[in-house]
Nucleic acid binder design. Structure first.
Length: 899
RNA sequence: GGGCGCAUAGCUCAGUUGGUCAGAGCGCAGCCUUCACACGGCUGAGGCCACAGGUUCGAGUCCUGUUGCGCCCA
């Protein structure tokens, strides 16, 4: 807990106070000074033991700025500031996530363009001003498109940086990175090449979840299920008998013996490769091993058994198509079924050559006729048409039965995902599961229960991590393929560059051993056209920010990092993938602690979203209420807990900041009264009331420190704030007269005055530092009133109990019977009496009698003089009370005297 | 269907290992133009701690179940 590194001492000087302190303008003033002074600069010479490194989320800059950013980034910032004040060198970089689909989409909409890689030359980007919403997008070349992406992300990043500076984040802006920068590309490609070499990355042609609009593969982590209306179609499959019997030569009879199945995707009937039932299902056991014919198409398919077939669902026997859903993929793989690809990458039904090998049919001509009605249609349209055809031919039993069922979508997509076969790059995560679970248990989670989300995800992994995307604005795979004599790529023997050559763009650069003119020629080479999934890059943020391989000295000091702050909805993506990469590359955790923030909900407890129109622009809030006010609200949200957006709570924070200004002005004014150069130190605090106040403050320091050590910023704030208000409402009022040391005071006593002033100075110093992580602007402002110009409160040491006078440290926990608590109680009684009589607080009290137990009266005794002043009590007496009687204060107001 | 979390004053939430734990703030009502603060201050009313059992001398606090809400996964 003691400072690990020496730090410039920050001696207090005689305060210089402003006439009328205000919050307005503090953000501009101090963010400029901090930048000039390098207040938050990371000292890269600090030894590793002194470093506290934070792996800050790089926000998606193409997304919108919203209060959620303000919320969660403030949480991390309070911890960063606490650690810095504890003497640790805080490595607090920030990045912008600018690569990938979100940016592409924003660029498409913003400029009205679409990327067409087949265009090799164009005249550059179209004039943005000429764009009309109704006009079709202008096709542009890939280089032009990428240039537009860079241009727009640069603008967006400026807006984010302005917001985060305004928010007072104590990041080191010299360590900013972006996920599309050369540094990030190099790190991503290097890590990929190493995975490739170690066998943890591989490419294969496999059924892949595919978004037909974005024309790209989608990973398990990007899936989302949405309820969609559908319908069960009950179809008759004519029985053909055992597989070893010769097939009939004529089309099956729709009215003959048949087995009935139910399906929500009849349009995939032509891709049916089997029927599947549960192995223990007595109804269908006899059929296993027999053949049936697909309706309309007359394709003989076997009946097979597999435990995933649900006897409760539909008729208890299902058709397997290549591919209707992920279960089909499992059946296809585990039962070694053939492939009949139907859905193309554009989402339309492609030609099906019935009668040719792989498409054998009992009635090729009829099959062709039927399929001609479907070919080229999208699944929804084909579904309607085939239902009609099936009904006409007598294969449809009854009417389709409408249902609502969950359908898989790409989380950003608008149409259901299809499953197509394509070549993709994967990282082997499945064999890693056990190891990843162990890592998850090593990691310290705040709050702890968030670990369950990670475990559930790891345990539920069903496929390796697909990291390739068929997009444009991303990190290219640093891979080429040799072309054989027919110009076909050899995917099994990829060509890779040496690490020193990174970053590379295989669509521009030439692989080692080849000449540029060999590109695309037989015997030459071709570049891998894909880019990496965004998560494949952002899973390396600790490495990218920490200078992995580029800056080994820095990396050795900051990695593994200490804290990953993030929101809970990206545990399965960002957190998970970062753990995977650190494990594979470094055999370690990427960080020791993870702090999960909740969401910001609107006042109706719904997640804030643009579509609901309930999004508040954060900049407006910060300008209207002040940064410290908004940060106060954010810091009030407990770790991991969803929190309602609440402007009233921000106003409370604003009141707190204003109170800090005014209370400071009072306390420091009294300190200044002490005279020229001799500011009294802690040893000058002698008065029991002052010592009692400091003793309570010591308890607050203890609790706030413990809370911060547990990453519970909200508790630290709550304890500090509660004490601060009591300090202002009661203690300041009680010592006011004594601190002024006015000659008119009932009991002028220079040493008692000096004690009050010293206590005010010490308490204020500690309180300001306790509040500094939450309200960095107002606390810095007040700090500057009585500290040298180059001394920032944000580099001042976190309060320690050793700062308190010994007598305050030794004061026992007073449990409501301490001098301050008793004095507050008496003061409250006096106030109540005046309020009941509708008198001003200044109106005099003729007589007040405190009745309490003797020990309590003894503790109260030193505060009686202060109470007389604070309550304007002419005569204040105490009377001992026998045990068992209720303590009380009898207050008798003075007669109103007409002026 | 499985998992996790939450249910405490009108609202937002504290209540850390069971024994002054029935609290805070906001809002509301009333009062006070006090020399740090009217971007104030003081005072006050308000709750069978979701429901039903159980453990215990004693339970918002532990256990079981129920209900409602939210999220994650299938």
């Amino acid at each position: 807990m003691s400072p690990l590194r020496p730090r410039p001492d920050q001696p207090a000087r005689r305060p210089v106070l402003p006439e009328r302190p205000a919050l307005e303008g503090l953000e501009e003033k101090w963010s400029v000074r901090w930048e000039q002074a390098g207040t938050y600069h990371f000292d890269r010479t600090a030894p590793r033991e002194a470093v506290f490194a934070i792996d800050t989320p790089p926000p998606t800059v193409s997304g919108s700025l919203h209060v959620g950013h303000v919320f969660s980034y403030t949480h991390a910032d309070t911890i960063a500031r606490y650690q810095r004040m504890q003497g640790r060198e805080v490595f607090y970089p920030i990045g912008w996530d600018d690569n990938g689909l979100p940016t592409e989409r924003r660029v498409q909409n913003y400029f009205g363009v679409r990327c067409d890689p087949s265009i090799t030359e164009d005249s550059g980007p179209p004039d943005r001003a000429g764009r009309r919403g109704s006009e079709p997008p202008v096709p542009v070349s890939r280089p032009t498109f990428v240039a537009l992406c860079h241009q727009l992300t640069a603008e967006d990043e400026g807006a984010f940086e302005a917001l985060f500076r305004r928010l007072g984040l104590s990041v080191d802006w010299r360590h900013t990175y972006t996920t599309i920068s050369d540094r990030a590309v190099r790190a991503s490609q290097r890590a990929f090449l190493r995975l490739l070499r170690s066998g943890h990355a591989y490419s294969t042609e496999a059924p892949t979840l595919w978004d037909v609009d974005f024309q790209t593969a989608v990973s398990q982590a990007e899936l989302e299920e949405r309820p969609l209306p559908g319908a069960y179609h009950r179809l008759r499959f004519p029985l053909l008998g055992p597989a070893d019997r010769p097939l009939p030569l004529s089309p099956p009879d729709p009215a003959g013996p048949a087995v009935e199945i139910e399906t929500t995707r009849p349009e995939l009937l032509a891709a049916c490769v089997a029927l599947v039932c549960h192995p223990d299902d007595p109804r269908y056991q006899p059929l296993v091993g027999q053949l049936v014919a697909t309706p309309l198409f007359g394709v003989p398919v076997p009946v097979v058994a597999h435990p995933l077939a649900d006897p409760e669902k539909g008729s208890g026997i299902a058709m397997v198509c290549t591919f209707g859903d992920t279960t089909d993929v499992v059946w296809w793989r585990e039962l070694a079924l053939p492939t009949r690809t139907l859905v193309g990458r554009d989402g339309r039904l492609q030609p099906a050559p019935f009668g040719s090998p792989g498409w054998e049919s009992l009635d090729p001509a009829g099959a062709q006729r039927a399929y001609a009605e479907l070919q080229g249609r999208r699944p929804e349209a084909a579904r309607r048409r085939i239902a009609e055809l099936l009904a006409e031919a007598g294969y449809l039993v009854g009417e389709p039965r409408p249902i609502t069922h969950p359908v898989k979508f790409y989380e950003r997509g608008e149409r259901p995902l299809e499953i197509v076969s394509s070549r993709q790059w994967y990282v082997r995560t499945l064999p890693l599961r056990q190891r990843l679970l162990e890592r998850g248990r090593e990691l310290r989670w705040h709050p702890p229960h968030m670990r369950h989300r990670y475990e559930a995800w790891v345990e539920g992994l069903s496929s390796d991590w697909n990291i390739s995307r068929q997009r444009f604005f991303g990190v290219p795979f640093p891979v080429w393929y040799p072309l054989d004599d027919e110009g076909q790529p050899d995917h099994d023997h990829p060509l890779v560059p040496p690490e020193e050559a990174l970053p590379v763009d295989p669509s521009v650069d030439t692989p080692p051993g080849y000449r540029p003119e060999q590109r695309g020629r037989p015997g030459g080479f071709v570049g891998d056209p894909d880019v990496m999934d965004t998560w494949a890059t952002s899973s390396l943020t600790p490495q990218i920010a920490g200078g992995w391989e580029d800056d080994p000295e820095l990396f050795g000091r900051v990695f593994p990092m200490h804290l990953r702050p993030q929101a809970h909805e990206i545990i399965r993506t960002w957190l998970f993938s970062t753990v995977v990469r650190a494990e594979l590359e470094h055999r370690s955790l990427p960080w020791s602690d993870v702090a999960i923030s909740g969401w910001v909900l609107d006042p109706d407890r719904k997640k804030m979203s643009k579509s609901k129109g309930n999004v508040v622009t954060p900049l407006d809030l910060l300008e209207r209420l002040g940064t410290d006010a908004v940060r106060y609200w954010a810091a009030s949200g407990r770790p991991g807990v969803d929190t309602a957006f609440d402007e009233a709570q921000m106003k409370v924070g604003r009141r707190l900041a204003i109170k800090v200004l005014n209370a400071s002005r009072f306390a420091l004014g009294r300190l200044a009264d002490e005279g020229a150069e001799t500011l009294p130190g802690p040893e000058a605090v002698r008065h029991p009331l002052d010592l009692a106040m400091l003793a309570e403050l010591g308890e607050v320091v203890r609790e706030a420190t413990a809370a911060f050590e547990a990453f519970d910023y909200a508790r630290a704030l709550e304890r500090t704030e509660a004490f601060f208000w009591r300090f202002c409402d009661d203690y300041l009022e009680l010592v006011k007269a004594r601190a002024y040391g006015e000659p008119g005071a009932t009991t002028p006593d220079p040493e008692a005055s000096r004690s009050a002033r010293a206590a005010l100075g010490l308490a204020l110093s500690i309180l300001l530092r306790l509040l500094a992580p939450f309200q960095p602007f107002v606390t810095e402002e007040v700090w500057s009133w009585w500290h040298d110009q180059d001394a920032s409160i944000h580099r001042a040491p976190w309060p320690r109990l050793e700062e308190l006078p010994v007598a305050a440290r030794e004061a026992s926990a007073a449990d409501g019977q301490g001098t301050l608590a008793l004095a507050s109680w008496v003061l409250g009684a006096i106030r109540r009496a005046k309020t009941d009589a509708r008198r001003s607080m200044r109106s005099p009290v003729a007589q007040a009698v405190v009745r309490h137990r003797p020990e309590a009266l003894a503790a109260l005794d030193p505060a009686l003089a202060d109470l007389r002043e604070a309550g304007a009590v002419l005569e204040l007496r105490t009377e001992a009370l026998p045990d068992g009687q209720e303590p009380a204060v009898a207050v008798e107001l003075a007669e109103l005297s007409e002026p």
